[in-house]
Simulated assay, not measured.
Amino acid sequence: MNGTQAGSAVDVDAAARLAEVLQPAAIDRLLADAEASGTPIDGVDGLLAQMTKAVLERVLETEMSDHLGYERGDSSGNGSGNSRNGHGAK
């Protein structure tokens, strides 16, 4: 498989995983759980805000790991001068 074919296979796999997560049944379960727990769909504490926050935090964590070259908790960054300083809740 050449580079173009490999890239296409990765694209297809990624699209399939995304479609799986965004299936109407999965979304319906999220909406039903939000309703059952009294969580609004929109607003500051709503389902959309919670989902957006979770996705953005994960993206930023992944970006930080890529930038530093090691995952959170990995000891390879200790004493390197380029280590994680930790974080706290806002």
Rank of each mutant, 00 (worst) to 15 (best):
M1C: 10
M1F: 14
N2G: 13
N2S: 09
G3H: 15
G3F: 13
Q5M: 12
A6M: 08
A6H: 09
G7A: 15
G7N: 11
G7M: 14
S8Y: 10
S8A: 13
S8V: 14
S8F: 11
A9S: 13
A9F: 12
V10T: 11
V10D: 03
V10N: 05
V10S: 06
D11F: 15
D11C: 15
V12W: 07
V12C: 05
A15Q: 12
A15P: 05
A16P: 11
R17M: 10
L18Q: 06
L18N: 06
L18G: 05
A19L: 14
V21F: 12
L22G: 04
L22E: 07
L22N: 07
Q23G: 14
P24Q: 10
A26S: 13
A26D: 10
D28C: 06
D28F: 04
D28E: 10
L31G: 06
L31W: 03
L31E: 10
D33I: 15
D33V: 15
E35H: 06
A36G: 09
A36I: 10
A36W: 03
S37D: 15
G38H: 05
G38R: 07
T39D: 10
T39F: 04
T39C: 14
T39M: 15
T39R: 10
D42N: 11
D42W: 11
G43K: 12
G43L: 11
G43H: 09
V44Y: 13
V44Q: 13
V44T: 11
D45M: 06
D45I: 05
G46Q: 08
G46M: 08
G46V: 08
L47F: 04
L48K: 15
A49E: 12
A49R: 10
T52P: 03
K53S: 05
K53D: 06
K53Y: 06
V55A: 15
V55P: 09
L56N: 05
L56C: 06
L56E: 05
E57C: 03
E57K: 15
R58E: 01
V59P: 00
V59D: 00
L60A: 05
L60I: 01
L60V: 02
E61A: 05
E63V: 02
M64L: 07
M64E: 08
M64Q: 06
S65F: 00
D66M: 03
D66H: 01
D66Y: 00
Y70E: 00
Y70M: 01
E71C: 02
E71D: 06
E71A: 08
E71W: 03
R72L: 02
R72F: 03
R72E: 04
G73E: 00
D74F: 02
D74H: 02
S75D: 04
S76L: 01
G77N: 00
G77S: 01
G79W: 01
G79A: 02
S80I: 02
S80N: 00
G81T: 01
G81F: 00
G81I: 01
G81M: 01
G81K: 00
N82M: 03
R84V: 02
R84F: 09
R84A: 02
N85W: 01
N85F: 04
H87E: 09
H87V: 03
H87A: 11
H87I: 04
G88E: 09
G88F: 08
G88S: 12
G88N: 07
A89K: 14
A89W: 09
A89V: 11
K90F: 11
